[in-house]
Design a protein around this nucleic acid. Structure first.
Lengths: 194, 194
DNA sequence: CGATTCTTTGAAAACAGTCAATCTGTGTGG
DNA sequence: CCACACAGATTGACTGTTTTCAAAGAATCG
């Protein structure tokens, strides 16, 4: 169960995890299973756990007054999922996160994460690098949303995360890209005409 | 000159910087002055420095085929500025960053930053926390851009960064919010009617 | 005061959203 | 095995917000 996470970390750090470190990681990352449609987090809650996706897929979104889902994150294997802002600051989250497929996660509490930080110095550095990588993603997406047309954003997604297009239905992709499912459908119809 | 940065760091960490640490920071953070309209970074360059704003203001943007500036970041006193992705990965930046006012920065090279990381363990942790904070900002902005109307985004900015509205002219704010200056002008005209 | 720079206003056009109906495929229960 | 429900995708007509283009009015600065 933890093998995926161990490999993930080994790929990100200079050395390999030793047995003691592996044991510590296994101790704090607890398995959690979500069936399709089950919530990992609901609006108004304070997020208790961060999660690493072993298998499955999740979506993160808000729901507006009219009941429409606005998807701002999609997560698959080897992605981190959660609302760190809520978790770190003990503030209620504005987001829903639910399993889009049957999903296996490894989750870690704030307290356990803090203890990891103090016991394994490289965790800070790994966390910093991962957080910066996430920054790059978010800045790119922000820029794309601000300057690209709907069609350009779809092309961009095809290059950046092609796996999303196979894995999620169009109405989910549309929302993630900040457009309606009708618009996405029309864009695809137009592209085919070429 | 370095006082602002020292205080900034002291406010973010558990203990205070000691004399040796202060000396190291002074050694690697070099003063840099930009006159209004001077570039800190231009499209196509590989970013050599990250910067901390001591005094002044900068804008980060791309220029599209038609020559229009699309502003994606605004930076004032006590903000970090730069393209870390370009700096860390040695890739050409897609962004321009220039001084919007006469500006004083403290800049640090990648090499010097790495040496700080190794000599002062808390730098990793501070970097992680700051990067996560930046993540929260970016996620909020992304969500705002995707789900809010132009008017709501302006209201949101008034709450989040009210200082921007006083400091930058409307056409800059408009671009930062992902709308045209005409739209922003009309929104304001409408708000006044109430 | 002349020259930028910034802001406002109007009219037309474009892009995407909404609403509604239909079509498709998939799977489940009777 | 069929019928039906359900989730997803498509299409059309209409609406609406924002953009674009153009011009002119205000403010600021050397």
């Amino acid at each position: 169960m933890h093998q995926g996470l161990i490999e993930y970390i080994n790929n990100k750090i200079a050395t390999k995890l030793n047995d003691s470190e592996i044991a510590q990681i296994k101790a704090v990352f607890k398995p959690k299973t979500l069936r399709k449609h089950q919530f990992f987090l609901e609006e108004g809650e304070v997020s208790k756990y961060g999660g690493f996706v072993i298998k499955g897929a999740l979506k993160q979104y808000t729901i507006d007054e009219s009941g429409k889902e606005n998807i701002i994150g999609l997560y698959v294997e080897n992605w981190w999922v959660g609302d760190r802002e809520s978790q770190m600051n003990n503030t209620p989250t504005p987001y829903y996160i639910d399993a889009f497929e049957n999903t296996e996660l490894l989750v870690v509490s704030k307290e356990d994460f803090v203890s990891l930080l103090s016991q394994m110095p490289f965790v800070s550095e790994l966390g910093r690098v991962l957080s910066e990588k996430r920054n790059f993603q978010l800045l790119r997406r922000l820029h794309a949303t601000q300057v690209m047309t709907a069609e350009q954003r779809l092309n961009d997604l095809e290059k950046t995360y092609p796996e999303f297009l196979q894995r999620f239905p169009q109405h989910i992709i549309a929302s993630y890209l900040g457009m309606t499912k009708e618009t996405l459908s029309r864009i695809r119809a137009n592209s085919l005409k070429k």
